[in-house]
Amino acid sequence: IINNLKLIREKKKISQSELAALLEVSRQTINGIEKNKYNPSLQLALKIAYYLNTPLEDIFQW
């Protein structure tokens, strides 16, 4: 999986903590996703895309 979450999140000036709060997950979860240590569920990936107002395929590429 190619993961552009960190790049997109930083472009939008959103911290890991802010995104985690919006998604109701821990900051460690966001960190793990960004470091490719954790693959989000489809539901979480869709929520990330929604809150970042970015197409899912721009954030994650399988």
Rank of each mutant, 00 (worst) to 15 (best):
I14A: 03
I33N: 00
N53V: 05
R27W: 15
S15V: 04
N4Y: 09
S17I: 11
I48E: 00
K13R: 13
S26E: 07
K12S: 10
T29V: 14
I14R: 04
L19S: 00
I8D: 00
L7W: 09
I8L: 07
S17N: 12
I14E: 01
L5S: 02
D58I: 07
Q43W: 12
Q61C: 11
K12Q: 14
V25E: 05
K6G: 08
D58M: 10
S41L: 03
N36F: 10
L42Y: 14
E18Y: 07
E34D: 03
P55I: 04
R9C: 06
L22C: 11
I30R: 02
I14N: 01
E18W: 07
L44N: 04
E57N: 11
R27L: 15
A21G: 12
S26K: 08
L56N: 01
Y51H: 09
E34T: 02
N31G: 08
L42A: 06
L23R: 00
T29M: 14
E10A: 08
I2C: 13
L23D: 00
E57L: 08
L44G: 00
L7P: 09
S17D: 14
L23C: 15
W62H: 10
Q28F: 08
L44R: 03
F60D: 01
E10K: 11
S41T: 11
Q43P: 11
N36P: 03
N31L: 11
P40S: 03
E10T: 13
F60N: 00
K11F: 08
K47G: 07
E18P: 03
V25L: 06
E24C: 14
L44M: 08
N53Y: 05
E10L: 13
D58H: 10
R9W: 04
G32T: 09
Y38G: 06
S15G: 07
Q16H: 04
Y38F: 13
T54I: 07
S41W: 06
K35W: 08
Q61A: 09
A20G: 07
K47Y: 04
S15T: 14
I8Q: 05
S26T: 10
R27C: 10
K6I: 05
I14T: 05
N53Q: 14
V25Y: 02
F60A: 00
I2A: 10
A45H: 02
K11G: 13
E10N: 09
Q43V: 13
S41G: 09
S15Q: 06
A21M: 14
I14W: 05
E34L: 04
E34M: 03
Y50W: 09
L52T: 04
P40Y: 04
N39E: 14
I30D: 00
Q61H: 13
N53E: 15
L56G: 02
T54R: 04
S26D: 13
N3L: 03
A21N: 12
L44H: 03
S41N: 09
S41A: 05
L22G: 13
T29S: 08
K35E: 15
N39A: 15
L7F: 13
E57G: 11
A49T: 03
E24S: 13
L5T: 03
R9S: 02
L42K: 07
K12R: 10
I30H: 00
K11Q: 14
S17Y: 09
A20W: 03
I2G: 10
N31F: 06
L23M: 07
L22H: 14
I48F: 04
G32M: 15
I14Q: 04
L5Q: 02
Q28S: 13
K47D: 06
K12D: 03
P40D: 14
D58R: 07
I48K: 00
Q16F: 02
N36E: 07
K35P: 03
L44C: 05
I1N: 10
I33T: 02
L23H: 00
W62V: 12
D58T: 11
L19R: 00
A20R: 02
K12I: 08
N31V: 14
K35Y: 07
N4G: 05
I1R: 13
L56F: 10
N39H: 15
L44Q: 06
K37P: 03
Q28I: 12
G32E: 15
L52V: 03
I2K: 14
N3M: 04
Y38M: 13
A49H: 03
I1W: 14
A20K: 02
E18G: 09
W62L: 14
A21H: 12
I33E: 01
K11M: 13
Y38C: 12
D58S: 08
I14L: 12
S41V: 04
A49Q: 03
L19P: 00
N36A: 09
R9M: 07
K6S: 08
S17Q: 12
A20L: 02
E10S: 08
T54V: 13
Y51L: 11
R9P: 01
K35T: 15
Q61N: 12
S17H: 13
N53W: 04
I48V: 05
Q28K: 13
Q28H: 14
F60Q: 00
P55K: 10
E10R: 09
T29R: 10
K35Q: 15
W62A: 08
L44A: 03
N36L: 10
A45Y: 03
Q16I: 12
R9I: 04
N3H: 04
L46W: 07
K13Y: 09
N4W: 05
K47W: 05
I59G: 00
S15L: 06
Y38H: 13
L19N: 00
K47P: 01
N39L: 15
I33G: 01
L52H: 00
Q28T: 12
I59C: 02
A49D: 01
V25M: 06
Q43S: 10
L52A: 01
L52G: 02
P55S: 10
Q16A: 08
L7H: 14
I8P: 01
N53L: 05
Q43A: 15
T54P: 00
L46Y: 09
L42V: 08
P40L: 09
F60E: 00
I33M: 07
K12G: 04
R9Y: 04
E24K: 15
I48M: 09
S17L: 11
L7G: 13
T54Y: 06
I33L: 08
T54K: 04
A49M: 02
I30C: 03
S41H: 06
N31W: 08
W62D: 08
K35V: 09
I8A: 07
A20D: 02
N53H: 08
L56W: 05
D58N: 09
I14P: 00
I59V: 06
N4P: 01
L52K: 00
I59K: 00
K35D: 13
E10V: 11
I1P: 10
S17T: 10
E18L: 07
N4E: 04
L56A: 05
Q16R: 07
W62K: 07
L7Y: 12
S15W: 03
Y51E: 05
S26W: 04
R9D: 02
N31A: 13
A20I: 03
N36M: 11
L52D: 00
D58L: 12
E57Q: 10
K37F: 13
N31I: 14
F60W: 11
L46C: 14
E24M: 12
L22K: 12
S26F: 03
K13D: 09
A20Y: 01
R27V: 15
A45C: 11
S15N: 06
Y50K: 10
A20E: 01
E10I: 12
Y51F: 13
L5A: 03
W62M: 13
L19C: 04
N39D: 08
K6V: 06
E18M: 09
N39W: 15
N3R: 03
K13V: 06
N4D: 04
I8V: 12
E34Y: 02
I48T: 03
N31K: 14
I2N: 12
R27K: 13
I59D: 01
L5E: 01
K11S: 15
S15F: 04
T54E: 08
R27S: 11
I14H: 04
Q16V: 12
N4F: 08
I48G: 00
N31D: 15
T54F: 05
S26N: 10
N53S: 12
G32A: 15
S15Y: 10
L23P: 00
A45T: 04
L42E: 06
T29P: 02
L46F: 07
P55N: 07
G32Y: 15
I33H: 01
D58Q: 11
Y50I: 07
E18F: 07
A45R: 07
Y51R: 05
E34Q: 02
G32S: 13
L7K: 14
W62C: 13
Q43L: 14
T29L: 15
I48N: 00
K35L: 14
E57D: 12
L19G: 00
P55Q: 07
K13F: 09
I33F: 05
N39R: 15
N31P: 01
L52E: 00
V25R: 03
I48S: 01
R9A: 02
K13S: 11
K11T: 11
E24T: 07
N39Y: 15
Y38D: 05
K6N: 05
K11H: 10
V25F: 03
K37T: 13
L44P: 01
L23F: 02
I1L: 14
